[in-house]
Simulated assay, not measured.
Amino acid sequence: MDIFYVYPYLLLLEQGDCDAKKLNEASNDFIRHICRLHEGHGDRLRVFFHLQYMKFRLTVLRERYHNNGQNHLPCYCHVVGAIMYVENTMERLGTPQEDTGGKTGCPPGEGPPVLWTADAINLVELLYACHELKLFNNGEISLKDLTAHVCQTFGVDVKNVSSYYARMRRRKGDDRTYFIDRLREVLLRKMDTDDEKQYRRNK
């Protein structure tokens, strides 16, 4: 294993290529590779230095994209998610799992964990809307408890959920619900595209 190997995913992020499809495919490949490396490589110290090098490059990218405008928001979100995944993997390196022969990583036969790799504020925006609609526990759960549970499940560090809400309220005009509006936009676009494909097949 080359400690200074650069994944195609990292190259896309460094080039500022914000094509969602390319990033998602490269991200999945990156996570699978890190998971296999963590599970199967015998030299833990070498794996640790490899991950540390990845984290360093990703941290530099995070600073580059921070406050760099909406054009690079997808890249910034991917960078934050990748850093969290690398950090979690580094933490697990020091905690051997039971019944795995001293190895750590993904359980045999299972894929990588499901992590939220977009910006945390996007998840908070979604959870606020769901909470207002009482979609969890018929509304019999506090927003704080809901956020804590979901964020822990998806590996997101949200210490003060109200601060994220304050940031959303400070947005201007149509950007106040940027993420939810974006979800609607991309889903409608997919439906339209699939409708068009089906129409062509049926002609």
Rank of each mutant, 00 (worst) to 15 (best):
residue 111 G to T: 11
residue 111 G to V: 01
residue 112 P to D: 12
residue 112 P to F: 06
residue 114 V to W: 00
residue 115 L to K: 09
residue 115 L to T: 04
residue 118 A to P: 02
residue 118 A to N: 15
residue 118 A to K: 14
residue 119 D to T: 08
residue 120 A to W: 00
residue 121 I to H: 03
residue 121 I to P: 00
residue 122 N to D: 15
residue 122 N to I: 00
residue 123 L to A: 01
residue 123 L to Y: 00
residue 124 V to W: 03
residue 124 V to R: 01
residue 124 V to N: 02
residue 125 E to M: 04
residue 125 E to K: 06
residue 125 E to D: 03
residue 125 E to N: 06
residue 126 L to W: 11
residue 129 A to V: 08
residue 129 A to S: 07
residue 130 C to P: 07
residue 130 C to A: 11
residue 131 H to T: 06
residue 131 H to P: 02
residue 131 H to V: 04
residue 132 E to F: 08
residue 132 E to N: 13
residue 132 E to Q: 13
residue 132 E to A: 14
residue 133 L to P: 01
residue 134 K to F: 02
residue 134 K to A: 12
residue 135 L to K: 05
residue 135 L to C: 02
residue 136 F to V: 13
residue 136 F to C: 10
residue 136 F to K: 06
residue 136 F to R: 13
residue 137 N to R: 10
residue 139 G to A: 07
residue 139 G to C: 05
residue 140 E to V: 14
residue 141 I to A: 05
residue 141 I to W: 02
residue 142 S to W: 03
residue 142 S to C: 04
residue 143 L to H: 12
residue 144 K to Q: 13
residue 144 K to N: 08
residue 145 D to F: 01
residue 146 L to R: 07
residue 146 L to W: 00
residue 146 L to F: 00
residue 147 T to E: 02
residue 148 A to C: 12
residue 148 A to L: 14
residue 148 A to N: 10
residue 148 A to S: 15
residue 149 H to N: 13
residue 149 H to Y: 09
residue 150 V to D: 03
residue 151 C to T: 11
residue 151 C to K: 04
residue 151 C to V: 02
residue 151 C to I: 01
residue 152 Q to D: 13
residue 152 Q to G: 09
residue 153 T to K: 14
residue 154 F to C: 02
residue 156 V to I: 11
residue 156 V to L: 01
residue 156 V to M: 05
residue 157 D to N: 15
residue 157 D to H: 15
residue 158 V to N: 08
residue 158 V to I: 06
residue 158 V to C: 04
residue 159 K to W: 12
residue 160 N to D: 07
residue 160 N to W: 01
residue 161 V to F: 10
residue 162 S to D: 15
residue 162 S to L: 11
residue 163 S to Q: 10
residue 164 Y to I: 05
residue 164 Y to H: 13
residue 164 Y to T: 00
residue 164 Y to G: 01
residue 165 Y to P: 03
residue 166 A to I: 11
residue 166 A to T: 15
residue 166 A to F: 10
residue 166 A to M: 11
residue 168 M to P: 01
residue 169 R to F: 11
residue 169 R to L: 12
residue 170 R to D: 14
residue 170 R to N: 15
residue 171 R to K: 05
residue 171 R to C: 02
residue 171 R to A: 06
residue 171 R to E: 09
residue 172 K to Y: 08
residue 174 D to P: 05
residue 174 D to I: 13
residue 174 D to S: 13
residue 175 D to N: 09
residue 177 T to L: 11
residue 178 Y to F: 15
residue 178 Y to V: 09
residue 181 D to L: 03
residue 181 D to C: 07
residue 181 D to T: 10
residue 182 R to F: 07
residue 183 L to S: 04
residue 184 R to N: 12
residue 184 R to F: 14
residue 185 E to P: 03
residue 185 E to F: 12
residue 186 V to W: 04
residue 187 L to Y: 07
residue 187 L to I: 10
residue 187 L to Q: 13
residue 187 L to D: 10
